[in-house]
Protein backbone atom coordinates (compact mmCIF):
# COMPACT_ATOMS: atom_id res chain seq x y z
CA UNK A 1 0.00 0.00 0.00
CA UNK A 2 1.35 3.41 -0.93
CA UNK A 3 0.41 6.77 0.55
CA UNK A 4 0.20 9.33 -2.22
CA UNK A 5 -0.76 12.52 -0.40
CA UNK A 6 -0.94 13.41 3.22
CA UNK A 7 -1.82 16.33 5.36
CA UNK A 8 -2.63 16.91 9.01
CA UNK A 9 -5.40 19.28 10.02
CA UNK A 10 -5.88 20.54 13.54
CA UNK A 11 -9.46 20.79 14.76
CA UNK A 12 -9.85 23.23 17.60
CA UNK A 13 -13.02 25.16 16.88
CA UNK A 14 -16.18 24.81 14.84
CA UNK A 15 -14.93 26.91 11.94
CA UNK A 16 -12.07 24.45 11.41
CA UNK A 17 -14.70 21.92 10.40
CA UNK A 18 -15.58 23.83 7.23
CA UNK A 19 -11.92 24.03 6.22
CA UNK A 20 -11.45 20.35 7.01
CA UNK A 21 -14.48 19.30 4.97
CA UNK A 22 -13.22 21.28 1.99
CA UNK A 23 -9.85 19.57 2.24
CA UNK A 24 -11.47 16.12 2.31
CA UNK A 25 -13.62 17.08 -0.69
CA UNK A 26 -10.44 18.17 -2.49
CA UNK A 27 -8.81 14.80 -1.82
CA UNK A 28 -11.90 12.94 -3.02
CA UNK A 29 -11.92 15.02 -6.20
CA UNK A 30 -8.22 14.35 -6.72
CA UNK A 31 -8.87 10.63 -7.10
CA UNK A 32 -12.09 11.30 -9.04
CA UNK A 33 -14.33 9.70 -6.44
CA UNK A 34 -18.00 9.65 -7.51
CA UNK A 35 -20.48 12.10 -6.04
CA UNK A 36 -22.39 9.59 -3.91
CA UNK A 37 -19.23 8.10 -2.38
CA UNK A 38 -17.81 11.55 -1.83
CA UNK A 39 -20.98 12.67 -0.05
CA UNK A 40 -20.88 9.55 2.13
CA UNK A 41 -17.23 10.15 3.02
CA UNK A 42 -17.86 13.81 3.82
CA UNK A 43 -20.87 13.00 5.96
CA UNK A 44 -18.99 10.33 7.92
CA UNK A 45 -16.08 12.76 8.38
CA UNK A 46 -18.47 15.43 9.58
CA UNK A 47 -19.96 13.10 12.21
CA UNK A 48 -16.55 12.06 13.52
CA UNK A 49 -15.13 15.54 13.62
CA UNK A 50 -18.17 16.71 15.60
CA UNK A 51 -17.64 13.89 18.12
CA UNK A 52 -14.05 14.98 18.46
CA UNK A 53 -15.03 18.58 19.15
CA UNK A 54 -17.87 17.74 21.48
CA UNK A 55 -16.38 15.01 23.60
CA UNK A 56 -12.64 15.63 23.40
CA UNK A 57 -12.45 19.37 22.82
CA UNK A 58 -10.77 18.91 19.46
CA UNK A 59 -7.88 16.95 18.08
CA UNK A 60 -6.27 16.36 14.74
CA UNK A 61 -7.07 14.58 11.53
CA UNK A 62 -4.57 12.96 9.22
CA UNK A 63 -5.88 12.96 5.63
CA UNK A 64 -4.27 10.61 3.15
CA UNK A 65 -4.80 9.35 -0.36
CA UNK A 66 -3.85 5.69 -0.37
CA UNK A 67 -3.37 3.24 -3.18
CA UNK A 68 -3.61 -0.50 -2.63
CA UNK A 69 -1.88 -3.30 -4.50
CA UNK A 70 -5.23 -4.39 -5.88
CA UNK A 71 -5.33 -1.04 -7.67
CA UNK A 72 -7.88 0.35 -5.28
CA UNK A 73 -7.48 4.01 -4.55
CA UNK A 74 -9.14 5.74 -1.66
CA UNK A 75 -9.12 8.42 0.98
CA UNK A 76 -8.12 7.50 4.52
CA UNK A 77 -8.83 9.77 7.46
CA UNK A 78 -7.39 9.24 10.92
CA UNK A 79 -9.08 11.20 13.70
CA UNK A 80 -7.07 11.29 16.89
CA UNK A 81 -7.91 13.08 20.10
CA UNK A 82 -6.68 13.16 23.66
CA UNK A 83 -10.13 13.17 25.19
CA UNK A 84 -11.61 10.99 27.91
CA UNK A 85 -11.93 7.89 25.71
CA UNK A 86 -15.08 5.79 25.30
CA UNK A 87 -15.98 3.61 28.31
CA UNK A 88 -18.17 1.12 26.44
CA UNK A 89 -17.29 0.87 22.80
CA UNK A 90 -19.89 -1.78 22.02
CA UNK A 91 -22.63 0.47 23.29
CA UNK A 92 -21.20 3.48 21.48
CA UNK A 93 -21.40 1.57 18.22
CA UNK A 94 -25.12 0.87 18.69
CA UNK A 95 -27.71 2.94 16.90
CA UNK A 96 -29.45 5.37 19.18
CA UNK A 97 -26.98 5.27 22.04
CA UNK A 98 -25.62 8.62 23.14
CA UNK A 99 -24.13 10.03 26.32
CA UNK A 100 -24.75 13.51 24.96
CA UNK A 101 -28.00 14.85 23.66
CA UNK A 102 -27.55 13.70 20.08
CA UNK A 103 -29.44 11.01 18.19
CA UNK A 104 -26.64 8.52 18.71
CA UNK A 105 -26.11 7.98 15.01
CA UNK A 106 -22.61 9.41 14.76
CA UNK A 107 -20.38 6.35 15.16
CA UNK A 108 -22.66 3.60 13.78
CA UNK A 109 -23.82 5.89 10.97
CA UNK A 110 -20.27 6.80 10.01
CA UNK A 111 -19.36 3.11 9.98
CA UNK A 112 -22.16 2.34 7.51
CA UNK A 113 -21.03 5.11 5.20
CA UNK A 114 -17.39 4.07 4.72
CA UNK A 115 -15.51 1.05 3.38
CA UNK A 116 -13.24 0.40 6.39
CA UNK A 117 -13.88 1.60 9.93
CA UNK A 118 -11.57 1.12 12.86
CA UNK A 119 -11.81 2.53 16.37
CA UNK A 120 -9.31 2.36 19.21
CA UNK A 121 -9.88 3.98 22.55
CA UNK A 122 -8.12 4.14 25.88
CA UNK A 123 -9.86 5.59 28.92
CA UNK A 124 -8.30 8.86 29.96
CA UNK A 125 -5.91 8.85 26.99
CA UNK A 126 -8.03 9.39 23.94
CA UNK A 127 -9.65 7.86 20.90
CA UNK A 128 -8.43 7.17 17.39
CA UNK A 129 -10.88 6.48 14.58
CA UNK A 130 -9.65 5.52 11.13
CA UNK A 131 -11.96 5.45 8.15
CA UNK A 132 -11.19 4.57 4.55
CA UNK A 133 -13.45 5.12 1.59
CA UNK A 134 -12.45 3.48 -1.68
CA UNK A 135 -13.01 5.35 -4.88
CA UNK A 136 -15.50 2.70 -6.04
CA UNK A 137 -17.10 1.34 -2.95
Amino acid sequence: MIVLNKDTIKIEKEQDVVFFRNRVAEYADKIKMGLVNKTKLLTAASELVRNMLRYANGGKVLCEIISHATLQTGVRLTFSDQGPGIPDIEKAMQDGYSTGKSLGLGLPGAKRLVSIFDIKTQLGKGTTVTITKWKNG
Partner: peptide
Protein backbone atom coordinates in the same frame (compact mmCIF):
# COMPACT_ATOMS: atom_id res chain seq x y z
CA UNK B 1 -32.29 17.83 -1.67
CA UNK B 2 -29.50 16.44 -3.83
CA UNK B 3 -29.89 12.72 -4.65
CA UNK B 4 -26.49 11.90 -3.13
CA UNK B 5 -27.56 13.60 0.10
CA UNK B 6 -30.79 11.59 0.20
CA UNK B 7 -28.88 8.32 -0.29
CA UNK B 8 -26.45 9.25 2.48
CA UNK B 9 -29.18 10.27 4.92
CA UNK B 10 -30.92 6.93 4.62
CA UNK B 11 -27.71 4.96 5.00
CA UNK B 12 -26.82 7.06 8.01
CA UNK B 13 -30.14 5.98 9.49
CA UNK B 14 -31.62 9.40 10.02
Amino acid sequence: MQPAVAITLIELGL
